[in-house]
Design a protein around this nucleic acid. Sequence first.
DNA 1: GTGGTCTAGACCACG
DNA 2: GTGGTCTAGACCACG
Lengths: 138, 138, 138, 138
Amino acid sequence: MTAFHIAITTGSGTPIYRQIIDQVRLVVATEALPAGHAMPSVRSLAEQLLVNANTVAKAYGELVRDGVLESHHGLGFFVSEKRQIYSKAERLRRLRLAVDAFIHEAVFLDFTAEEIQRTVDEKLAELDLEPKIAGEKS
Amino acid sequence: MTAFHIAITTGSGTPIYRQIIDQVRLVVATEALPAGHAMPSVRSLAEQLLVNANTVAKAYGELVRDGVLESHHGLGFFVSEKRQIYSKAERLRRLRLAVDAFIHEAVFLDFTAEEIQRTVDEKLAELDLEPKIAGEKS
Amino acid sequence: MTAFHIAITTGSGTPIYRQIIDQVRLVVATEALPAGHAMPSVRSLAEQLLVNANTVAKAYGELVRDGVLESHHGLGFFVSEKRQIYSKAERLRRLRLAVDAFIHEAVFLDFTAEEIQRTVDEKLAELDLEPKIAGEKS
Amino acid sequence: MTAFHIAITTGSGTPIYRQIIDQVRLVVATEALPAGHAMPSVRSLAEQLLVNANTVAKAYGELVRDGVLESHHGLGFFVSEKRQIYSKAERLRRLRLAVDAFIHEAVFLDFTAEEIQRTVDEKLAELDLEPKIAGEKS
DNA sequence: GTGGTCTAGACCACG
DNA sequence: GTGGTCTAGACCACG
């Protein structure tokens, strides 16, 4: 309940509320928090992260709009039933925005196409998104 | 003059000058353009791409500010001798942050590992250009 | 360009930012503002409505997330290409939330089922959502 | 005792006490329950609905605060003689605001007039209850 | 000039 | 206690 390990980096260019959103999504997904699980209150998370409560509220609010959390007035925020709220076209649009931003940054950092592909493959393997089919070599 | 193969897509949402920057960076990163190599002149590249010369100048200018190119008055633009603003470690750190953000968004959008890889490959193919520069006049 | 007639009522229970959202949606739809049409800047609309700029920014931000507007940094907000970003299931979920809230209020006001239905029918006729098929009587 | 037909749906997201309130209001609004008419006792309604007596007490309490019911110590709850907090004009004004908000949201979600009407009808049918109260013991 | 983020703090509603 | 809204004002990035 108390262990909500979110680390905020200031001055990284990534807004604090985005970092909160990303890490809450990740915690909910990887820790497999069940639907209905209580989130830390806005004020308590703000205290823990040493940021303003408005910033946490903004992050939670976007997580609600994305269908990750739901808010119950007077009670707090809770993990919501997993559901995909966007249309296929919208999901593709967002995937393209994300890949554009990523490739942009990678190219800016002077990585080659091969290096970029390898990094993506490694990250995917690390997340074990597609479990290996038994019988495939290593 | 025609040998610098940059593919411009209009109406894709990405500004033309950004497309030029990305593709110059990519070709420089892949060593197809070694340090000290001359770039096509602003006017010739603009003619080739059928865009305004100011657009190319803006792209070159930003590449100069980023340390990728150097401008030599009366001679033109050249691949910078001493570019490499970030240390290897810093580049890797930022690449990992970028790939994390991208993969998390893609997974959040319910795309599979195969779909993610395909999208990356397509984006890279779209940016890619012929790796050799032939007969560039100083 | 200057004529953006949005009326804010304070103390009505409806938050200001929601009133802005609803009225911008309405103006965009009924005035048929074309994609790419410029919106009043955050600061100018805030001045006009005598509200804080943050409140307008919040409203515009949600309109962006709903696909109604898009923001171009340094330039302002613009009407975006009309598109439906939500999945069928999500659209239904939102319709049910909306009908629940509406019926709730109507029942609270002691209107009967017949009165409620009549009001809905009148409003739909007023908007002329489904244009009459030629040959139907009046 | 069993004659007060209220349909409770669990797991619909709407709290039970709210469902009770809405349905009592509806039956009062449709004149099926005239002013001065006795309500089922808290305990009997709780038994009938298979819910906790506190839940019914909470619903009745709110209806008293809203001027719909009156509590007479030792006798029970009765439909209020002089309810009608809002003037006719005020009720209509608020109904119009509510229907506007609802229709705008539904249209924004790309539903047709038929779909909107059907949803309203379904919701009303879901709330509806048998219009007569038979043999209620004081 | 434009939007974007964040803070500090007030005040409200729900319970 | 909980979340929700709003203000005033600072500071940043894009152009």
